[in-house]
Simulated assay, not measured.
Amino acid sequence: MYQAVAAIVFVASAAPVWAQATPEGLWRNIDDKTGEAKAEIRIRDIGGGVLNGALEKRLSKDAKPDEVCDECSDDRKGKPILGLEIIRGAKKADGKEVWEGGKILDPENGRNYTLRMTPVEGGKKLEVRGSIGPFGRTQTWIRIQ
Score class of each variant (00 low, 15 high):
residue 15 A to R: 13
residue 9 V to N: 08
residue 74 D to T: 08
residue 98 V to L: 07
residue 116 R to H: 06
residue 71 E to F: 01
residue 30 I to S: 01
residue 13 S to W: 10
residue 55 L to F: 05
residue 75 D to M: 12
residue 58 R to F: 08
residue 16 P to D: 12
residue 86 I to S: 02
residue 57 K to F: 04
residue 37 A to T: 02
residue 14 A to Q: 14
residue 6 A to C: 11
residue 119 P to R: 05
residue 7 A to N: 15
residue 36 E to V: 02
residue 52 N to V: 13
residue 17 V to G: 12
residue 108 E to D: 14
residue 90 A to E: 06
residue 10 F to P: 06
residue 68 V to S: 07
residue 86 I to P: 00
residue 63 A to M: 09
residue 81 I to H: 01
residue 23 P to D: 12
residue 116 R to M: 03
residue 129 R to K: 11
residue 45 D to S: 06
residue 14 A to S: 14
residue 15 A to C: 08
residue 131 S to I: 00
residue 73 S to T: 09
residue 61 K to H: 09
residue 12 A to M: 10
residue 59 L to I: 03
residue 60 S to I: 09
residue 44 R to T: 15
residue 122 G to S: 11
residue 99 W to G: 02
residue 51 L to F: 08
residue 145 Q to L: 14
residue 73 S to H: 07
residue 13 S to P: 07
residue 23 P to G: 10
residue 11 V to A: 15
residue 56 E to A: 15
residue 22 T to S: 15
residue 71 E to Q: 02
residue 20 Q to T: 13
residue 32 D to M: 02
residue 107 P to W: 04
residue 125 K to N: 08
residue 15 A to H: 11
residue 25 G to Q: 04
residue 15 A to Q: 12
residue 7 A to D: 10
residue 85 E to F: 03
residue 52 N to F: 15
residue 115 L to W: 00
residue 98 V to S: 06
residue 50 V to W: 09
residue 72 C to A: 09
residue 36 E to I: 02
residue 113 Y to K: 00
residue 12 A to E: 08
residue 82 L to P: 01
residue 121 E to L: 07
residue 76 R to C: 08
residue 14 A to K: 09
residue 125 K to P: 05
residue 137 R to P: 01
residue 3 Q to L: 14
residue 102 G to A: 01
residue 25 G to Y: 04
residue 2 Y to D: 15
residue 132 I to R: 00
residue 130 G to S: 03
residue 10 F to C: 11
residue 101 G to Q: 01
residue 94 D to Q: 12
residue 110 G to I: 03
residue 124 K to N: 12
residue 41 I to Y: 08
residue 83 G to R: 06
residue 119 P to I: 09
residue 86 I to Q: 05
residue 142 I to G: 06
residue 20 Q to F: 13
residue 48 G to S: 11
residue 57 K to R: 12
residue 107 P to H: 04
residue 120 V to P: 02
residue 59 L to W: 03
residue 123 G to K: 08
residue 70 D to W: 02
residue 12 A to R: 07
residue 82 L to N: 07
residue 88 R to Y: 08
residue 115 L to K: 00
residue 61 K to N: 11
residue 22 T to L: 10
residue 54 A to L: 04
residue 91 K to H: 09
residue 115 L to G: 00
residue 56 E to R: 11
residue 4 A to M: 09
residue 75 D to G: 09
residue 137 R to Y: 03
residue 24 E to R: 06
residue 94 D to S: 15
residue 104 I to G: 02
residue 62 D to N: 11
residue 134 P to F: 00
residue 61 K to I: 12
residue 71 E to T: 03
residue 24 E to P: 13
residue 118 T to K: 08
residue 105 L to D: 06
residue 47 G to M: 11
residue 126 L to M: 05
residue 70 D to S: 13
residue 133 G to F: 00
residue 8 I to V: 15
residue 75 D to L: 11
residue 59 L to K: 03
residue 40 E to C: 04
residue 141 W to I: 12
residue 137 R to A: 03
residue 124 K to H: 14
residue 88 R to N: 11
residue 60 S to D: 13
residue 5 V to R: 15
residue 1 M to N: 07
residue 119 P to T: 08
residue 140 T to P: 03
residue 93 A to R: 11
residue 76 R to Q: 03
residue 142 I to P: 04
residue 8 I to S: 15
residue 48 G to T: 05
residue 138 T to E: 00
residue 112 N to M: 11
residue 19 A to Q: 14
residue 52 N to M: 12
residue 81 I to G: 03
residue 132 I to N: 00
residue 140 T to Q: 05
residue 14 A to Y: 14
residue 120 V to M: 07
